[in-house]
Write a protein that binds this DNA or RNA. Structure first.
Length: 271
DNA sequence: ACTGGATCCTGATCGC
DNA sequence: TGCGATCAGGATCCAG
């Protein structure tokens, strides 16, 4: 479910509840997520640690302690909640971390595509080793995209969704960014001009930034929300708008499968 | 080295 | 109302 803006929003939302807290208890469910939860090492190394920061890399949420980092990925259906540990765990709650404040952090994920990992200090998770640039990194610019695009024959939509190129662009914001940049999603990456790459880069940044800003406004009551915490509705211009009029030119929005994912575009605005 | 397809799961929705 | 088919916002793995 969550794309980068949602993950960033959740990160900011849980941070004040976690920083400075000590891990008083861990409850780890029996089911494996994308990978098994490293129960033994978490009980040994994360239990009783103090959390001193919460950050994000790509769509991973990183909870920093002295001995290492708890790394959380929400997959397609994962959510995090701050709750009273007295409340019973719900179906599909796979992980709970009780804090010294009396709150608990709970990870809920029906589809179990998410992940909970442990990264000891001075180690690099394999999941992180191949990641491309953050979209807000200064090095992520038109030249960077243009250079990489030369080597790729895939559709530009798949290109910008490739984590080795740039992280955090999921299926929704890929469609939205390409609409903003007026680029057809099926255009082959290597045929992009430098100008298109510049445009695409700034569109991606702008779309994600706007989504984060809109998520920020819903942050206030983070701990009091239910499972929908952290999600927000952004005005999407093409995604899920098949056969609805383009907001620029009124042409009907088309949908197509590109790389096995549904894609939406305006056949008039996006050449 | 790059590419497309299969794959891990559950739940919501839709047509019959 | 019930039932099967289809689809879902992610990311990895593998054969070619």
């Amino acid at each position: 479910m969550p794309e980068l803006p949602e993950v960033e929003t959740i990160c900011r939302g849980i941070k004040p509840y976690l920083v400075g807290q000590t891990v008083k208890a861990l409850t780890i469910g029996p089911k494996k997520l994308r990978w098994p939860i490293p129960r033994a090492v978490l009980k040994k190394d994360f239990h009783r640690q103090t959390i001193h920061n919460v950050s994000r890399r790509a769509k991973y949420i990183i909870i920093h302690s002295d001995r290492g980092q708890l790394v959380i990925h929400l997959g397609m259906s994962g959510t995090l909640r701050i709750e009273n540990p007295e409340m019973p765990l719900r179906k599909h709650d796979h992980f709970e971390c009780v804090l010294s404040s009396g709150n608990s952090l709970r990870f809920h994920d029906p589809r179990r595509f998410g992940a909970i990992l442990w990264a000891p200090n001075q180690s690099l998770l394999p999941q992180f080793s191949q990641l491309g640039l953050e979209p807000f990194d200064r090095a992520f610019n038109g030249h960077y995209l243009f250079t990489l695009a030369q080597r790729h024959k895939i559709a530009v939509k798949n290109f910008i969704m490739d984590n080795k190129i740039v992280v955090g662009v999921g299926n929704i914001y890929a469609s939205e960014s390409l609409f903003a940049a007026k680029i057809h999603p099926a255009q082959k990456a290597y045929t992009l001009s430098l100008a298109q790459c510049h445009q695409l880069c700034s569109s991606i940044r702008e779309i994600l930034q706007r989504a984060i800003a809109s998520g920020g406004t819903t942050l206030k009551d983070f701990a009091h929300h239910d499972g929908k915490t952290g999600y927000f509705k952004v005005k999407l211009k093409v995604y899920d708008r098949h056969n609805q009029p383009c907001m620029n030119c009124r042409t009907l929005i088309q949908s197509a499968r590109i790389g096995q994912r549904s894609s939406y575009y305006c056949p008039t605005c996006q050449i």
